[in-house]
Design a protein around this nucleic acid. Structure first.
Lengths: 128, 128
DNA sequence: TTGTGTTAGCGAAAGGTTTCGCTACACTGT
DNA sequence: ACAGTGTAGCGAAACCTTTCGCTAACACAA
């Protein structure tokens, strides 16, 4: 068994998480609708995936109602933060800033976003 | 077959890429030394992994010399950029800046890095 | 009750990744 | 030439992920 919590979600798992972040709490059918649209997979597949993800601790569900309602355990924010620090660790060897610089350089940012980033930089200078 | 170029490298593949980014161009033995240290795997495994990665176009090698010398096809920079945009696409729904802000907020940056980020922001304003 | 549809679950097939044993080949020193 | 050593490759085992067929349980209308 893979070590719990230390593993990125697989491709399909991530796809399901993304759907949940949009719709949760929601029943299998809704998740399936989106998944089938994108990949044409069977309803059983979605159910199974969710049960696997439950076992891995990626999702929970409310069993008091039918149909059961699923939720992602990690919020989009928290998951993003986790992936990000993994990315930083694995690719950038722990330097968060080099990632930031690259993201800034490659991305197109609006004026308000640029201002927001400046404000953040100022704050960082104030309390190091 | 998986669609070429559209897939993240798997766990071991990434581990090998990281080693290559440090040592390339280098022979199997060197890669294996590091891999074995971390995971205790067999020499054959390393060779096989490299051959799989060749087939996927993740690495190349110079066959004119023995032992063959391996190199990653994508530089660390380019790979990082690719992963990053995948991350942005998949988790942040395409907003690079929200990732940047999060990375800034959670990471500790040195003064020189902060300055560098400011400079970059200025440049972005100049040519939007 | 009987039939119809929706929900949940199991087990196994299909497909991908990771591991290694065994084989072969090239080169070096004797 | 021959043993010994380092290098490369193949095919299959072991393992994980993804898919689905089949079955059961349940609710509700005819």
């Amino acid at each position: 068994m893979r070590e719990l919590g230390s593993s990125q979600p697989t491709a399909v798992e991530l796809e399901i998480l993304r759907i949940l972040w949009d719709l949760e709490p929601c029943p299998v059918r809704d998740i399936h609708a989106r998944l089938a649209e994108a990949k044409g997979t069977n309803y059983s597949t979605t159910v199974k995936m969710l049960s696997v993800m439950m076992q891995k601790g990626l999702v929970t569900r409310n069993e008091k109602v039918t149909p059961h309602l699923y939720k992602a355990v990690l919020s989009r924010q928290k998951a993003a933060k986790k992936f990000l620090s993994e990315l930083i660790e694995k690719i950038y060897d722990g330097s968060a800033m080099s990632l930031v610089l690259q993201a800034l350089a490659s991305g197109k940012a609006s004026q308000s976003e640029i201002n927001e980033a400046r404000k953040l930089l100022d704050e960082m200078e104030d309390k190091p």
